[in-house]
Design a protein around this nucleic acid. Sequence first.
DNA 1: GAACGCAATAGTGTCGACACTTTCTTGACG
DNA 2: CGTCAAGAAAGTGTCGACACTATTGCGTTC
Lengths: 261, 261
Amino acid sequence: MRIVVTERAETSADSDPSLANEAETRRAADSSERAYNTIRKLLVEFKLKPGERINEVQLSRSLGVSRTPIREALNRLASEGFVSLTPNRGFFVRSLSTEGLLDLYEFRSIIECAAFKLMCERADDSEIDRLRSYWEAIVDAYPNQPPDIILAEDEGFHLLIAELSGNPELVGQLTSINARIRFIRRIQIEHPSHDRTQITSHSAIVDAAVRRDVENGMKLLREHIEMTVSATQQALKDALLKVFAPDNGADLKRRRRTRDA
Amino acid sequence: MRIVVTERAETSADSDPSLANEAETRRAADSSERAYNTIRKLLVEFKLKPGERINEVQLSRSLGVSRTPIREALNRLASEGFVSLTPNRGFFVRSLSTEGLLDLYEFRSIIECAAFKLMCERADDSEIDRLRSYWEAIVDAYPNQPPDIILAEDEGFHLLIAELSGNPELVGQLTSINARIRFIRRIQIEHPSHDRTQITSHSAIVDAAVRRDVENGMKLLREHIEMTVSATQQALKDALLKVFAPDNGADLKRRRRTRDA
DNA sequence: GAACGCAATAGTGTCGACACTTTCTTGACG
DNA sequence: CGTCAAGAAAGTGTCGACACTATTGCGTTC
């Protein structure tokens, strides 16, 4: 596995008894939180490969913390679907196969369409205008932004719709979905197949929202999302090929679905 | 707080009843899992009251395990929205206000309608027939069953629709929603306002599925769910009144929404 | 008597250790 | 040669302890 963490250039925090420097020796009070973020990044960037067993001891050494915060982070990641837990055997990286990706995008489409509908029904004009102005403020520069910005602004757009739906559950769900597919989306944006004219659909969605045209808006959203799916699938395949470089993709078949009841 | 865990005499679909008893003989290897189930039950039954701070030491003593599995369970419950975590102050019971309940039911409605639609589009006739036979096998005895059975069979019905949608994400989401509202639903079923003629809508939904009538089926589902919401709201109010017996309900106002980004 | 420290208490966050389980290694046996 | 078993090694699950932080209670000062 051989993971080198560069999150903070603070390697070898352990085994330094000579340094009694107070500020440096202070034990961090948020190891779990940082472990969570770091591990999630490792997962989402395929540093930890799909299907692989996660070695807690190795991970804890890499992050320079004990196993306790590692396990707390892994438990959270387990309920969020990033990893699965088999009793007495430990945590495994849940493979996000192309199949699973389709399911996830379909779920996303469901959430977003519902959010749009609710927004149209509930948001007052000033709120709809927030959506319009949010998009207008970034639309011009949008196609020329670096991938990370594009991604963040796109997520912000869709998340704002969810917020304007007035249902916090939808916001939470969309946030969680975003986290799970962020890396894939980033790859897709950087992929040569990426078509930046999709911004026009955002504008069209805003128009539909202003007109409170539920049917049309949902149709646009559905198409907007579906449009990215096939391109994203190709991007995912490329990414997986890179990850499992020489091997065949046999490991991918071992799809686990151990979401507990 | 003073919690005494009497795991017995409940639904107890789980296996092992006594948690503290086993500590004397041998160390349990699944304390986290059982702590998770137990704490979730405490939450869902309002033994741990909304807004209350969760004392890990007390809890661990009650369950007869150390704080480690308690914290692992709480971390999972945090990602699932049952509790929230404030750094250095600990875990708090997230209050499920009537408002939050509405949001949750709305979310459920969205998931179920989408699942029904997908099922109609994808499931073959034999699968639809599984739904039909599932319901036919239980429909006669249904109104006279004890509440727990009614609840389980109802959940099973809706869950089967989600499964037949072919999207595991929807199954997982519905499972999670069910867990969060189970106790409320149980109260509602036992509440005098409960109307058992709602089984007719299940039959109607099956009919719509057999005819692949998406529009009508979704309409039925939406109504079916909405019908229970108002009744459930009343049941929830009664339950909360009982929980916060002498106090005013001021604690309920402190609604936390600390779902991490 | 009220506001302000300031110590004492209670509670969380993390650690290292150890018991138990799974997995790997090795060597005997067919 | 392959199979199996026993022991060794690796790894997980849980514990008790301790460092650090928040809270409470108490005495002091104005």
